[in-house]
Amino acid sequence: MDELKLAMEEHMEQMVDLIQKFTAELRSGFGPAYDNFIGFFHAVDWKEPWLMCLLGFYIVLLSVTIFSRRHVNFHMGLFLLALSGIYFAERLNRFLGEHWKSFATQNYFDPHGIFLSTIWSGPLLIIAMIILINTLFSLCHLIVQWKRAELRHRARLSHKKEN
């Protein structure tokens, strides 16, 4: 019985330590994450032509996504293209890392792909999530229309049986 009590006390001490560490991280706030973001933002030369073209590409892709929100089949194609772009990001990072001198002033393409994941895959994931959310709303709307049509059909059938 004493062993069980001792084990419970040790477990409680571990839980208290975990909670204290967690609350200490929460108290520090978003300061460290903000500092990392600002450091990343200032480390990149955003006036490079290829980065400006990439930004323009995302603006066009987001505009096409928003303006074609009623075309579910087109959205599925865009969704698959966005996910394909994310899938091939590792190969793209390797290729761009080998040829960075022909289009960039510095090598942004590290072996782990952090830069490309942030600049390439991140926005594509956001656009894919927008498409997915829009598709879910479209499906909910379609289910409501189908159920209304089913209820109207049942009402017509019951009306015919009464006559």
Rank of each mutant, 00 (worst) to 15 (best):
F37K: 03
F37G: 04
F37S: 07
F37M: 11
I38S: 02
I38H: 07
I38A: 08
G39D: 15
G39N: 15
G39W: 07
F40V: 04
F40R: 01
F41L: 09
F41Q: 09
H42D: 14
A43Y: 06
A43V: 01
V44Q: 01
V44S: 03
D45K: 07
D45C: 05
W46G: 02
W46M: 05
W46Y: 09
K47N: 15
K47G: 08
K47L: 12
K47D: 15
K47H: 13
E48S: 02
E48R: 07
E48V: 04
P49T: 08
W50L: 10
W50N: 09
L51I: 13
L51A: 06
L51Q: 02
M52H: 05
M52G: 02
M52W: 09
M52I: 14
M52V: 14
C53Y: 12
C53F: 09
L55A: 13
G56I: 05
G56S: 08
G56A: 09
F57T: 08
F57M: 08
Y58D: 02
Y58E: 01
Y58A: 02
I59K: 00
I59V: 14
I59L: 02
I59W: 03
V60I: 12
V60R: 02
V60Q: 01
L61R: 05
L61Y: 12
L61K: 00
L62V: 06
L62S: 10
L62T: 08
S63R: 05
S63N: 06
V64G: 04
V64Y: 02
V64R: 02
T65V: 05
I66C: 08
F67Y: 13
F67K: 14
S68K: 10
S68I: 00
S68V: 04
R69Y: 09
R69W: 12
R69V: 05
R69D: 13
R69T: 09
R70M: 12
H71M: 10
H71L: 14
H71C: 10
V72Q: 11
V72I: 10
N73T: 11
N73I: 15
H75M: 15
H75E: 15
H75C: 10
H75R: 13
H75S: 15
G77L: 12
L78R: 04
L78F: 06
F79V: 09
F79C: 04
L80T: 09
L80G: 06
L80I: 08
L80K: 06
L80M: 14
L81Y: 07
L81G: 00
L81H: 03
A82E: 09
A82S: 12
L83E: 12
L83R: 03
L83G: 05
